[in-house]
Every structure is written in structure tokens, then in C-alpha cells.
Nucleic acid binder design. Structure first.
Lengths: 105, 105
DNA sequence: TTAATATGCAACCATTTGGTTGCATGTCAA
DNA sequence: TTGACATGCAACCAAATGGTTGCATATTAA
């Protein structure tokens, strides 16, 4: 569960897609997460194991099912590494502006 | 310069080390960045190319030298993807507390 | 002009990665 | 109890990754 694992876990688009799925609906089971994924269940299992190793996903066994939960803490720590607090507020303001402008199209 | 490139770039510890070096002192040249790196200059060049591709580093040619600058914008966008604004403030507060406690040791 | 310095390009190689298939185990429900 | 369902484990493979060496190019300074 080192920071190194977090970065490695986030490097793969499939794993980020899994995090997005959990962000949309937390506590999903393996089979649920496999839905609409263009690969085998075993491949998804491997990805989830890497996410769990990185502490980005927590699991809870419920009978024969396994629920998966997103843990946002490590992601926040990434931002803190290279962005000072005030600089971040500035960047957030910029980002907000950009989004507002995009909505006007 | 897609988000995919950003995550891939951050996945390698050597590249994160290069970002740390630039965070400590911006505008360093290739040779300067190679100092104390346990690999050949060519390897470092490749890493910097990947960081540049991801728009995490911007370069400026000065004669025969090439200066490298850190760009924090893409990193901020990572945090925004999975952390809501208010949740982030909560996480920041937690992180601050943790740091304060660590200082007391 | 010429030698030293700073960077660029390309071929090559070992290891890691992301995926597969095949089979095993554990749990629920009829 | 037995079949269906949810997940786990392991061997295998192609492609990507991170590193090397060797040589080329461009700029500065003596």
C-alpha cells in the first residue's frame, strides 16, 4: 500500500474505468463490475487486486459475493505532493472557469 | 497530451523523482537533472520525453541547453476526477491533522 | 578552427504487464 | 444433496516498458 502502488494502479485505463464505476455506484460486486467490460472476468479480477493492493479499493465479503468500495484518500495525497495549498485553490478556480465556459457552448 | 498520458507518465518512480527535482528547483537542464540519477543520460532523456508528452513538463531551448519546467495543472485534474470539492476539503483537513501529529513525535 | 560540452536518435535486450484459458473452491437455492 | 452461480488460482503468451550502447549533431569557448 505504498504511494508507488497507487501510481502504478492508476496508470491503466481499465483500472481507472473501474474506479469510475465505483465512484458512480459504490459497493459493486465483481460480476457487476465485469458488465460491459470488454475482457474476461479473470482479467478484471487482476485489475481489482492491483487497486486493492494500492488501497484505492476496499472489499467486503458478503457470502459468496465480494463488494468493492472506492477509497479516495490516496488520490488526494497525490495532489498534495506537487501542488501547494494556495496554488491548488488557484488551479481550482481556473478549472471552475473552464467548466463554466464549456457549459456555455 | 491526453489524461491517459498523464497517468502513464506518473506511474514510474524515476519520472516522479524528476518532477520532485523540478518542484524543488524549476528550469533545470538535462545534465543537471541527470546528477545523482543512477542511470544513463539517455534513459533520463526518455523519461523527460514522456513527461513532456503528458504536458507535465514544458521545455525551453537556451542555446545548446534545454531548460525543463514543471506544469502542475494536469495533476490537479486527477484529484478533481474522483474527489468532490467538499470531500476534498475534508480530506485536506484530515491530512493536515496527520501532519501536525507527525510533527509532535 | 577546433575541442569540449549538451543534447538527439536508433537499435537492441531483459523484464514487466495485461490479457488469455483451464480448472478449483465455496456458497446459495431448489 | 445437487446444480447453478460467484469467485479464486495458476500457467501461459504477446506486447509494452525501462534500460543499455554506439554514434550523430549542434553550440560554446579557447
Amino acid at each position: 500500500m505504498s504511494m508507488d502502488d497507487v501510481f502504478r494502479a492508476l496508470a491503466d485505463p481499465t483500472r481507472r474505468q473501474l474506479l469510475d464505476k465505483l465512484h458512480a455506484k459504490n459497493g459493486q460486486t465483481l460480476n457487476a463490475l465485469c458488465a460491459e467490460m470488454d475482457m474476461t472476468r479473470q482479467a478484471v479480477t487482476k485489475h481489482l487486486a492491483i487497486l486493492e493492493e494500492a488501497n484505492l479499493v476496499t472489499t467486503l465479503r458478503k457470502g459468496r459475493e465480494k463488494q468493492h468500495y472506492l477509497n479516495p484518500v490516496p488520490i488526494n495525497e497525490i495532489a498534495e505532493r506537487w501542488i501547494g495549498k494556495f496554488e491548488r485553490h488557484r488551479l481550482d478556480a481556473l478549472s471552475d472557469l473552464k467548466k463554466r465556459l464549456e457549459r456555455e457552448d
